[in-house]
Nucleic acid binder design. Structure first.
Length: 223
DNA sequence: TGCTGATCATCG
DNA sequence: CGATGATCAGCA
């Protein structure tokens, strides 16, 4: 089967999303002749890349929404048999320098999360990748309450980084948004602000949504 | 090296 | 057994 084109509009995108709900990843991978790994030990991004392909998203590795003309970001969300998120959700890389003038309003996190297509995938580890089941995708925009939580965490984390306290930060900080390493390995380093404003080299970090936050998004959607 | 897509692996 | 820190692949 040919590579799907980009969906023209949001209704067309949602029709495609609804069309794959209930199917296994193996079924759509076969349909589109997409390679399937036996496990995700090495190809951790396989599920996201398969779904992107099938829905006609723009090729990855660009700092743009997956559907630029629609302003929609696609996020697959691995869930358990009971419907709980199994993993945190990566949002974006964390800027560690040039933080002057950066506000929540113009932040990459706010931009990325302004319009998300969540696609739950039943993804328990005892299921082979091909046996994992696609759930019901839905569009989401943060409520005032959700955005307030994100903003609070973002501002707290950004202030710590700007004040040179990046090394004091770990995954415990933040109620809904956290900072964790996001790198090829623990030897990859990037520039950051250290104590007294000195330049230091540190592990690249990313912003992640905690599972409790995404769990509540699901609960609200499917209640 | 940085950014996209994320999950793996280990520890408390 | 859930969460934090570490890691994997591809591309520009």
């Amino acid at each position: 089967m040919n590579k799907p084109n980009a969906p023209r509009d949001i209704p067309e995108l949602m029709m495609r999303v609804n069309a794959i709900a209930g199917l296994t990843l193996g079924e759509i991978a076969t349909q589109y002749a997409f390679k399937t790994p036996d496990n995700l030990l090495r190809e951790k991004g396989w599920i996201g890349q398969l779904i992107e392909y099938v829905l006609g998203a723009t090729a990855a590795s660009k700092p743009e929404p997956d559907f630029p003309h629609l302003g929609v970001e696609l996020k697959t969300l691995p869930i358990s048999y009971t419907g709980k998120p199994l993993e945190t959700t990566y949002v974006s890389i964390t800027p560690l320098t040039n933080l002057h003038g950066v506000t929540w309003q113009n932040s990459v996190v706010k931009k990325k999360l302004s319009h998300v297509l969540w696609l739950p995938i039943l993804s328990e580890r005892d299921l082979a990748p091909t046996d994992r089941i696609i759930g019901s995708g839905f569009l989401w925009q943060p409520s005032q309450q959700e955005e307030a939580l994100l903003k609070k965490d973002w501002e707290e984390l950004t202030e710590m980084i700007a004040l040179g306290n990046i090394e004091q930060l770990n995954g415990h900080f933040g109620q809904v948004l956290q900072l964790r390493p996001k790198a090829a390995n623990s030897k990859a380093l990037t520039q950051a602000i250290g104590p007294n404003g000195c330049e230091i080299m540190t592990l690249p970090r990313g912003y992640y949504l905690k599972t409790e936050f995404t769990r509540q998004i699901l609960a609200k959607q499917f209640s």
